[in-house]
Design a protein around this nucleic acid. Sequence first.
DNA 1: TCCAGGTAACTGGTCCAACCAGTTGACCTC
DNA 2: GAGGTCAACTGGTTGGACCAGTTACCTGGA
Lengths: 236, 236
Amino acid sequence: MDITPVTRSAVSDVVFGQLVAEILSGRLTPGDALPGERELAERFEVNRHAVREALKRVQQAGLVRISQGGKTRVLDWRGHAGLDTLSQLAAAGALTPLEILRDISEMRRSVAADAARLCAERASDDQIGIVLAAAQAYPIDSSAIADTFAPDLDFWTAVIEGSGNIAYRLGLNTLVAGFTEIGWQTVVDLGLGEEYVDRDAHQHLARLIADRDADGAQRLAADLLGRTVARIAAHL
Amino acid sequence: MDITPVTRSAVSDVVFGQLVAEILSGRLTPGDALPGERELAERFEVNRHAVREALKRVQQAGLVRISQGGKTRVLDWRGHAGLDTLSQLAAAGALTPLEILRDISEMRRSVAADAARLCAERASDDQIGIVLAAAQAYPIDSSAIADTFAPDLDFWTAVIEGSGNIAYRLGLNTLVAGFTEIGWQTVVDLGLGEEYVDRDAHQHLARLIADRDADGAQRLAADLLGRTVARIAAHL
DNA sequence: TCCAGGTAACTGGTCCAACCAGTTGACCTC
DNA sequence: GAGGTCAACTGGTTGGACCAGTTACCTGGA
């Protein structure tokens, strides 16, 4: 049997999720006015406070504009939502998992390639050491693809830390969150795991970075991650 | 005189801002337990609901882990916060505005360059038309640099829309938000406006995209935005 | 007829107070 | 000392009241 920890989600989380889904799915279009908090509370059969907590978060996500006295109106999420909304897009079904997967991998490609370049240019010796160690920790056997996700993430985290770019660091977190939302299983099912088992390529990349070969590191990183992009594109 | 609309910020927003600042500034370190909601409410001199609304948002930002029955603990924001937290970093003073500006412009460079390539490869004719129009709308005179931000944003938004990558689209929103948080004035003061007045380069880029010259578009975009990166780096 | 002004009925914002539901640790028993 | 028990925390949820803006309608005077 496959026992999973019980997840009891808070009421406001459920309300939040439903509101976000309504907006991202297009059932609520920009400019639409949401029902009042009191009515929402009645319809969701929860207390108004829970609705308020949820609405505040929807606002923070950039999906609605709340104004005291006036009605809460839906915003155009393409123009107002932040990258963190990416992981909600899959859940809301606004895009297919494959589309989101492609976009994530494309962004990962350009960001990680640039991070590899920057890492080679300006990482401290300590940071380079971590990159080399992460490359060493890369698994050798290709049998259990799912188990290579963690080492792979460690490796790229080290590279991005070495780049010293905090936007890349935070962006990585967001992309991973979106990736997780889709589920690793989908990735495995699509046979997209090849990149994760190319231990030689990652070790080579680490060596290029350690040698301060910025151009070479960027090229190799772009090539390495580009394979995944191409493989996903083939499925679309 | 310079009249500014009165901004009345909600109580929970203030609490949210203070909590985020405490964490991002490092005054609260990962693993630390926050005071209980009741105590926070007492110290902020607000109702507990306001504290709860704020805490829920801090959790959504990935800065704390809330668990019923247990205490709310601070997370390592470098490893858990999403890109949307970027704009808070400036306000919290965790990094200098110049550092954040550099990181934003670096990310913009690699994302926009890739978007230019993708746009040339797969944008629809309608989308290409919008890019060309946005390039046409680029201002000619270089006197009022601040007025060129909007057309510049329109241009790159068109390019990214043409790329069809939703992650890039949302990422742009987040980067612009971070940029706005720092303030355009800082940018102008640093003399970083040159890129925004290079009308010829943007028109050239639009033409390359329209001609479906993916490599050329990527190169020019990277070069164009790379100038700003270099100019900021010179200040560090 | 038209429009300025007021007003009533909304909207979201804040607060108080109570109770439910998990977690933790001290304490008591065996 | 090992184990179980329970009280005292923690966050989660609810109800209701009231404050504070916005909106639309309605009225009375020009």
